[in-house]
Design a protein around this nucleic acid. Structure first.
Lengths: 222, 222
DNA sequence: CCTCCTGAAATTATCTATAATTTTTTGCCA
DNA sequence: TGGCAAAAAATTATAGATAATTTCAGGAGG
């Protein structure tokens, strides 16, 4: 087994459910029935309820008393809200990270960007992109700020996977390279400015729905 | 009774415990024992555990698997972190609130500031101050952002009550008035700039501890 | 054919009781 | 006094029960 030591059952359940919500395996509005989840994980309802509370706090689920828990819905307004919050907080984190950035970290970030550029599917692009942002922000050493940014990245990833369900168009991330160049040149203000603009960029993806109509779905691509 | 309908037991318990943590009735590092809490509220351990998860998400408690839950500790670095996060997010919220601000809202905010200036104790000052910030930010209509700001205000209040345990020195809040003047004059950028600087102001309070030594305790006073 | 109502089934929220594990405390002995 | 072992307490989890509420399916009536 080798999995029963580290942390609590509730947190394992919440991680698995979070992953499913982010990936889109659980659609917005879907009900999360505690007894079904409990049965699936071979657990009782107590840890399941605790997992639900965590998902609620992360904004991935909403709960109405006596009516149960549902996967949170989202719309263009929330995509914009998350983009702006990420811009504000990531800029703050970067400003504090700048004095602690080492060439080694910047090299790792460069590698992450290269990985993202080569990604052939949206899942691996998201993973590499997130790694890039994490790498350059982590040295700010502000745990509460980093935790908030992580939650916003989870929301971002959900929007992204919902827009690019299967297809993915590889792209070269010029912003990431410009940020790295500015950081290497010791120009923290410029790097922060590019990052703020970069994160707020909202991509449009044309999507054909069941009835054959073409809609545009919006997501954060940065 | 009239209290058993509205919401769930778990959320009531978490509200009461949050209130105690913020007010300082529960000190940093204090253990929260689920059975004791359950007994006090005449509840079983299940809703208590759910309440703990919410406190954890709000940053008011920390949980170590198998070792239970404790009231979160904090230090000057976290005070600074919360101040900077508040500055970043409140500025963002104000920028979006500006187009929706009405004279009625600004009048209410002015009243809140007047109430804060007259406050004779730190509790009522904090309440009025929070009302001021809420009033001018709420019209941004960004629920996720406002929820984050609320959590940061809870943390701020905790720092504040810890610094000004009993005493409180009334003060006239010139920043609040300057913000209102700028907003009335249609100068949103200036209002946002003052707000950003205002929230980052960290007050120092000399405090005498048990051994008679004088230390300085820091908190956000805005 | 659609709408509204009703009753059955499902679900939530809660409690009690219990077990296994782990941590903390206590108390003994050197 | 210090260190170790036993006892006590606490956490995490299960199982089963119950009251209240919501959901849903089907039938009566327009």
């Amino acid at each position: 087994m080798a999995n029963t030591q580290d942390d609590t059952l509730a947190s394992r359940i919440s991680r698995v459910l979070a992953e499913r919500i982010i990936s889109g395996a659980l659609s917005p509005g879907a009900r999360l029935r505690q007894d079904h989840v409990a049965e699936e994980f071979g657990a009782s309802h107590v840890p399941v309820r605790e997992a639900f509370r965590r998902l609620e706090a992360q904004g991935l689920a909403v709960s109405e008393p006596r009516r149960g828990v549902r996967v949170a819905s989202f719309d263009l307004r929330e995509v914009r809200e998350v983009a702006e919050m990420r811009a504000a907080l990531e800029v703050l984190a970067l400003r504090h990270a700048v004095p602690n950035l080492t060439p080694a970290v910047l090299d790792k970030a460069e590698t992450a960007t290269a990985t993202a550029d080569c990604a052939s599917d949206v899942r691996s692009w998201e993973e590499a992109n997130r790694a890039f942002h994490r790498l350059i922000l982590e040295p700010c050493a502000m745990p509460r700020l980093l935790a908030s940014i992580d939650d916003l990245h989870a929301a971002s990833a959900r929007f992204l996977f919902s827009a690019w369900r299967s297809s993915w168009q590889p792209r070269t991330d010029h912003d990431h390279r410009a940020i790295l160049a500015a950081l290497r040149g010791g120009n923290g203000d410029e790097a922060a400015a590019i990052l703020g603009r970069h994160v707020q960029w909202i991509g449009r993806t044309p999507v054909r729905n069941e009835s054959g109509e073409t809609r545009e779905i919006f997501s954060i691509v940065g």
